[in-house]
């Protein structure tokens, strides 16, 4: 397999805060990589560096064999960025938007016409090509946002939360478009807050937290390795009466996290730990309003790793 992206010891700080703290990873041709992480995890900084619009402080990045610093221009020709913001011109038509951005890559006349048409068809906006985006719904604008990034047929597409705040129909359209792009040979980095999108699209998932990659694997392996168990969630009224370490000492408990009033306890799947946990809580005078249990999933794995839910 060809390596499309190779990142080694990448670092970036804003003032004294490390936004990206020495991450390394590689992406192979044709992969869809899901990039997950809570807000402030360093996803956007990483994406901006890969998109060549932000200089790293340290580390090496190679994209399609080009060095990020020395050969940024060559990289730019081969990548397509779908920014988190809807970065389109509201004043001109959808077709003029796509034509403008594709034109920046040097395409002209017939080839340009062909690429513009293909991009608009892929996102399902060809019949709206002569309309101005101000008449579009949020979902249509997001689709145009994607069309502008892919018209020049980039080998690597980086999508930064491309489906934020849109209707289910547009979301399905976008997800299908991404699958088509991959079938056509593109490699895709997909950053999102929506777990189900990552689950349905990604070959591999990278989870970032506090500027580091804390896990990187297939969905199945992530769940297997990290979250293969049951997560119990207690809504606790008076947690200060119990020591977290005491819960850890229960045989089979693999993780304990507290977020606000929610106490998350992950236990190995086939161990009967629930009885011991409840007894310990009650013995220590803890009262709880509600208890739920959830089998291992990407979401519980994420929670297990970061101690936060995805949208925190």
């Amino acid at each position: 397999m060809d390596t499309i992206v190779s990142v080694s010891n990448l670092e970036k700080s804003y003032h004294s805060k490390k936004a990206v703290a020495g991450i390394s990873f590689s992406i192979q041709k044709g992969e869809i990589i899901g990039l997950l992480g809570p807000n402030g995890a360093g996803k956007s900084t990483t994406i901006n560096i890969l998109a060549t619009v932000l200089s790293p402080d340290h580390g090496e990045v190679q994209i399609l064999g080009y060095d990020l610093i020395r050969e940024a221009k060559s990289i730019k020709k081969e990548i397509g960025i779908v920014p988190q913001d809807i970065a389109i011109f509201e004043e001109i038509t959808a077709e003029q938007n796509v034509r403008f951005f594709a034109g920046l890559y040097g395409f002209k006349r017939n080839k340009l016409n062909e690429l513009v048409q293909e991009a608009l068809e892929l996102v399902g906006l060809y019949d709206k090509k002569d309309d101005k985006p101000r008449t579009f719904s949020g979902g249509m604008k997001r689709r145009l946002n994607i069309a502008c990034a892919i018209a020049h047929q980039p080998k690597l597409i980086i999508m930064d939360e491309p489906t934020v705040g849109i209707d289910p129909q547009s979301r399905n359209h976008i997800l299908n478009s991404i699958k088509t792009l991959r079938q056509n040979g593109a490699t895709i980095i997909y950053s999102t807050h929506y777990m189900e999108e990552v689950e349905s699209l990604s070959d591999r998932i990278m989870i970032m937290n506090e500027g580091r990659i804390i896990a990187e694997d297939t969905k199945e392996n992530l769940i297997q390795n990290i979250g293969n168990g049951i997560t119990y969630t207690f809504k606790i009224n008076n947690f200060n009466q119990i020591n977290k370490n005491e819960i850890f000492q229960i045989h089979g408990v693999t993780n304990v996290q507290l977020t606000g009033k929610d106490l998350f306890i992950t236990s190995e799947k086939n161990k009967d730990t629930l009885h011991s946990i409840v007894s310990l809580l009650l013995d220590n005078g803890c009262s709880f309003e509600k208890m739920t249990s959830k089998e291992a999933s990407l979401e519980t794995a994420f929670l297990d790793l970061t101690g936060r839910s995805l949208r925190d």
């Binding site: 020709k77 920014p83 970065a87 389109i88 890559y105 502008c148």
Partner: peptide, 14 residues
């Protein structure tokens, strides 16, 4: 303001 400048910068245009 509309982030289109940033987007243009991701293309070969400088």
């Amino acid at each position: 303001n509309n982030a289109t400048f940033k987007r243009i910068l991701t293309s070969p245009a400088e």
